[in-house]
Design a protein around this nucleic acid. Structure first.
Lengths: 256, 256
DNA sequence: GATCCCAACATCTCTAGACAAGCTGAAATC
DNA sequence: GATTTCAGCTTGTCTAGAGATGTTGGGATC
């Protein structure tokens, strides 16, 4: 979507998007600095010859992104803290505050974390997963369910879903975790995951979860729902994880 | 139903907001479930007697929140992965952070997250905080404790620690959240935070936390420990937060 | 000098249309 | 029966206005 932006400005791109891009470009170039006033609705109407709603929509893009903020009766201003480039590193560390054993880094290289239960199947995914993966009409998914242990203690349940069509005929189903695991295989198939989104919830475990993770009573679990996107924006994997909150802390780094 | 629309006994609320609230209420009540189709633009125009742009704006509120998604040519649907059951969920995404009205960004700005309890003091910080901040020998920290409410429900407790020497004489202690908040002030003082690290834990709340957040029994809390670094690597702020896990989902985006 | 009022200006809300673009299902065709 | 076409639905984009509401600064008043 954004690829066509720079390469083909003539392509049917909404006016409001073009105006928003122009503004962002000028901000990036330092023409407008944090705290500066941006052209307002009236300015954009005059400059670009568009209607108020269109100018508003353009400014709305910047507002939604957090790049700009409007002060009613005053004007639109560049915000002090612009959106980050979301280049975070994901780490799942065991215990201790200052960062102890990093068991999971960006390249998903696992150290002491090992798999002790594994099942692979091709079947229909739950509705919520299928929707995210873009599977229609009972199209099957490749499902890998795993349990991970750390120092002999089970700490993580993971269900990984991939579109079956994506991995048809490959040996991805046999792959274990590790540097040469799922993601490397996806890359070989031309579907290298380059962007990730994680949603984290917390709740009390179900009876089954408590048993499989050998949880002490009163220990909540993390639910991590990760979506992996390829370069073209396609969802190539959905991973649902249940983590023992007594064994894990989640760590994220990012820049302003 | 439309009778209530015409007269506004309470403060005049925008039509689009009222319509959006109606929809959200019905979703919360289970009248529309995830995956269900919502009334579209035409439906809302007919039901509420508003123009298309107004109906669109109402649906835009749900879209921005992540409650609903529109499929062009098809309709508007309740999302599978809603931020949360109830309406007050926030995204604490990396994206949001940097964009932030100091702390929370665009999302929250449009969603009435307000401070309802505030205390500022200069005192010694707990050991673990003082260590991270690099304070020695009882050097004091500036501590801002806040409780945030969303739609009248308390959802977040926040303790922010800054080296007192860093903010001596400034009015940072008076600042509230918002565009000109703590981070903007730090930037003015030459200690602009540029890098962040977050550690997330989950556990059952203490009695005090449960009371202050009005938690339902069996609801765990998130603990977010955020460290903010300036350009030179110095730690300029430590923020410890307790979040109602029933009201919040944490969301992170990152690239490989 | 201090206070109040107000006009100018900004964003916000809303209208009543219009056409474009994408999806779906049914009818027509092969 | 299988395929293609197309009408009718949907959301997306856009216009040219209008009034409401909030902010600001200057001028008149006290």
């Amino acid at each position: 979507m954004s690829a066509a932006m720079t390469s083909d400005p003539r392509a049917t791109q909404p006016k409001y998007q073009r105006i928003a891009d122009d503004l962002k470009r000028e901000i990036d170039a330092g023409r407008y600095r944090p705290g500066d006033r941006l052209p307002g609705e009236n300015d954009l109407m005059a400059t670009y010859g568009v209607a108020r709603m269109t100018a508003r929509q353009a400014l709305g893009v910047l507002k939604d992104e957090g790049t700009a903020e409007a002060r009613r009766g005053v004007g639109v201003f560049v915000r002090e803290f612009r959106p980050i480039r979301r280049r975070g590193i994901q780490r799942l560390s065991g215990r201790s505050w200052g960062g102890g054993a990093s068991v999971w880094s960006a390249d998903i290289a696992s150290r002491e974390l090992t798999v002790d239960q594994l099942s692979v199947a091709e079947r229909e995914a739950p509705e919520r997963i299928a929707a995210v993966l873009g599977l229609k009409g009972g199209e099957p998914a490749c499902v890998r369910s795993r349990r991970f242990v750390l120092d002999g203690k089970p700490v993580l349940l993971s269900d990984s879903y991939l579109p079956a069509a994506l991995v048809a005929g490959s040996r991805i189903t046999d792959q274990d975790t590790g540097p040469g695991g799922t993601y490397a295989r996806l890359a070989e198939l031309g579907h290298k995951p380059v962007h990730f989104q994680e949603q984290i919830r917390s709740r009390m475990p179900t009876g089954d979860e408590a048993e499989r993770l050998a949880l002490a009573p009163g220990t909540p679990v993390f639910l991590v729902h990760r979506t992996a996107f390829a370069e073209d924006g396609q969802v190539v994997e959905v991973n649902e994880m249940v983590l023992d909150s007594a064994s894990y802390i989640l760590e994220y780094d990012f820049d302003a």
